[in-house]
């Protein structure tokens, strides 16, 4: 893997926001040591939508956790906006496949949690929550508890909550994995629209190559564990893209096929490892 550190490092240093520098992370389990990621160098520019793809267990989520400051790298450094990430990185917001809603608060309560933490006045809070509920289409379910919602509605609540505290960078770990195709497309469109209009920086983990190409400015392909970067590909699509007609776009088709060719061998490796 000599060519494993491609052009990504220093890709766009003009407005660099997140930088992983020689990052490795190992976890000490009771019976063995797991090397999650190894020698990752990656630079993410402000406003960029970067998708991390690769076989499961290759440490993509670990990188998000380190960007959020939940883990420290075992070696190497993570920089955010020029300074070392040390402790909770309050500029980032996290959303995972498990939506992590508070089961004891209804939809309104969940969405307004970050606003309460920020100490906003009740009136301001209520207005903002109402706005967000409209945005994600949850009218009529304001007083439902998460257990009373469908999977898609929970996901929309989580997204609204994330947008409520309006972090500069969104760390999204397979956020739409459990959704049906239609809802997923809607969420993707919404996410892309929001990220563009609010100039969000996004690190997005997925297994889904179609999703990777559809959303990304750049896709970072990881090898199986210990995860390192195998390839970084710029997405040749315009930033202002129409997700509904994407499938007719030859550029999209070609890019998806290219990623597929990159991932395929690693999938076989993973299978070999698992057996």
């Amino acid at each position: 893997m000599v060519s494993a550190q491609p052009a990504g490092f220093g890709h766009d240093t003009r407005h660099e926001l997140i930088r992983f520098e020689n990052v490795s992370k190992t976890f000490e389990l009771s019976d063995r040591t797991v090397r999650a990621v190894e020698n990752v160098n990656l630079s993410v520019a402000r406003g960029e939508f970067v998708v991390l793809v690769g076989p499961s267990g290759c440490g993509k989520s670990t990188l998000l956790n380190m960007a959020a400051g939940l883990f420290h790298p075992t070696s190497g450094e993570v920089y955010y906006n020029g300074s070392l990430v040390d402790g909770y990185n309050l500029k980032t917001g996290y959303m995972t496949q498990n939506d992590h809603l508070l089961p004891w608060r209804d939809v309104v309560g969940n969405i307004s949690t970050p606003l309460e933490i920020r100490g906003l006045a009740r009136g301001t809070r209520e207005a903002r929550v109402e706005q967000l509920i409209d945005l994600v289409g949850l009218q009529g379910f304001e007083r439902s508890y998460p257990s009373q919602l469908s999977g898609g509605m929970r996901k929309r609540t989580a997204l609204a909550r994330l947008l409520a505290y309006d972090p500069e960078t969104l760390l999204l770990d397979e956020p739409f994995a459990a959704l049906d195709a239609q809802l997923r497309l809607n969420m993707q469109i919404e996410l892309l629209r929001i990220s563009r209009s609010l100039n969000k920086t996004i690190l997005f983990v997925t297994h889904d190559l179609d999703e990777a190409v559809a959303l990304s400015d750049r896709s970072v392909v990881f090898s199986p564990r210990p995860g390192h970067i195998r390839h970084i590909a710029d997405t040749p699509l315009p930033r202002d893209r129409n997700l509904t007609t994407l499938r007719h776009d030859p550029l999209y088709t070609r890019m998806t096929a290219e990623l597929w060719d990159l991932i395929m061998p690693t999938l076989q490796e993973t299978r070999g490892e698992a057996s």
């Binding site: 959020a68 996290y94 995972t96 933490i117």
Partner: peptide, 26 residues
């Protein structure tokens, strides 16, 4: 859930806020 606590901290919550909104209800 540690994840819930982490998520609240990422929202900028302090110990008391985490206690009231996550730890005690849980």
């Amino acid at each position: 859930s540690r994840e819930l606590i982490s998520i609240l901290y990422l929202m900028g919550a302090n110990e008391m806020q985490v206690l009231r909104r996550v730890v005690l209800p849980s």
